[in-house]
């Protein structure tokens, strides 16, 4: 029973990893590639590590395996967010068929706000110098 469960979990994990790799190979632009890899890889590694903890059924090994799973689940979204943000800032293009770009609108609004702020600052400075 235990062995069958281990086999099923390992196969499931390997299939998730295969889907992630196929996604990173076939997807058309950087952002879709990023979204495919993070989810599938985390799930696949989780399945394989749970299978390992079932096979050894030892307290220290189980703790280690679950620590790795927790660490991966915590860190891989953060890493994906960071690299996606840097890619957008450095001007990676979106796919030509993508329909939404909310960050662009956000950035335009922010730059407008900064421009107004700079203008007000300049105005205050000139008024100051005139008063002196």
């Amino acid at each position: 029973m235990n062995e069958i469960l281990i086999m099923i979990l390992c196969t499931l994990g390997a299939l998730f990893i295969l889907i992630a790799s196929f996604g990173i190979y076939k997807m058309p632009d950087f952002y879709t590639r990023l979204s495919v890899t993070i989810k599938a890889a985390t799930l696949g590694i989780g399945c394989i590590l749970i299978a390992a903890s079932m096979h050894f059924s030892d307290f220290s090994v189980t703790t280690k395996a679950f620590a790795i799973i927790l660490f991966l689940i915590l860190t891989s979204p953060v890493a994906g967010f960071l690299i996606g943000r840097v890619a957008y800032r450095t001007g990676t293009r979106l796919w030509k068929f993508s329909i939404m770009d909310e960050l662009k609108k956000d950035q335009v609004e922010r730059s407008e706000k900064e421009r107004l702020k700079k203008k007000a600052l300049k105005k205050a400075k000139t008024e100051d110098s005139e008063n002196q």
């Binding site: 994990g13 990893i17 992630a20 790799s21 990173i24 890899t37 890889a41 985390t42 696949g44 590694i45 394989i48 590590l49 790795i68 991966l72 891989s76 890493a79 690299i83």
Partner: peptide, 9 residues
């Protein structure tokens, strides 16, 4: 990043 993550598995 994905290569290293799969290395863990």
């Amino acid at each position: 990043d994905l290569l290293i993550t799969i290395g863990v598995g």
